[in-house]
Amino acid sequence: MSLDFNDETFRGDYTFKNSAKAIKRFPFPFPEDSYMYSVNMEPHVPGPVGSIFEHMFDVDEHYVAEMRDRAQVLADDPLRCQSLPHMELAGWDLLELIMESKARDYPHWFELHKDGNNWHWINKPLQIEQRFTFMDASTLPYGPLEYITRQTQGDFTLQDQRDDDLWIEAGMVTTQADWSLDFDIGMSFKQWHAPVPLAGQMGIFDRALKFLLKLQHGAPVRRFNWTMTVDPLLDTSPENYPKWGPSKTTMTPETIGHRQHLRVELQTLHRLPRSNAIVFPIRCYLIRFEELVTVPKWARRLHRVVRDIPDELATYKGFLRNKPLMLDYLAQFDDGQPTSLGFAPD
């Protein structure tokens, strides 16, 4: 593996870790000392050089290892990538968006050469070279959605738009916060979000849907979501819950700093041109508590957020049982000093 990418695992011996550079650019999701749901969408425009917002689709040091993990998840359970038949066109839209973005943003790693519909794609980190006919799925080893998302970090769902609603009808979901693509595929926006507590009553989904129905091509938006994960396990799926659930019960004050991770999702939304569908990339970033507390402001703030979160939300996010353990650990880094507004370290 090249020097650009870590040789690490997200299962078994869990050798995943963030370099100092990765910690520095980690998307800490709390702009203030408390947390409640909000729609909080902003334009997905390029950010500072080196930040996770620098490019449309961030490729970081975990890329190759994440793709290896995804291949293993799919080998174990092919149902993690599905596309209802009418969503193939949206799959081609997504393939084009990702290939063009990566070839433009990371020319030393990715190349796309087009001669009409004859396309030539080179992915150097994964050692893939593919000649294929755009819009002809028989010239690729997988459907367009699966082909390109086996080479792109983050989960992806594709939403068809009709009848003033968004329908989740295709996706690649192997790094999820405990929801099942296989069960949810085919659902409307509100059906798919039905199990989320509180947010529905707050009108969050009404506002978000109304906004997304008007999302325009060329004007993507982004927001953050977050949860907690014990051990750097990407695949926290309901399918495998009996396999990873017990890990929550074996954490101790001695191991929590190493085993407990904050899991942040950078969610972006893009209108796709041919299909009029919306793609929803959900990019997961993991950071272990002992990495996170190296930034004093983040340590103070995370302590306060976890302390004040309603139990209903902690239950939904799956960390209620370890909340006391987390607070004991984080409290030692909270000296009560005020924190500055915004995400950035002081």
Partner: peptide, 15 residues
């Protein structure tokens, strides 16, 4: 799920 025509069952003693 209207596609599967079923409610969802989740392991109760996973943890």
């Amino acid at each position: 799920s209207r596609r599967i025509a079923a409610f969802q069952g989740v392991n109760i003693d996973a943890e």
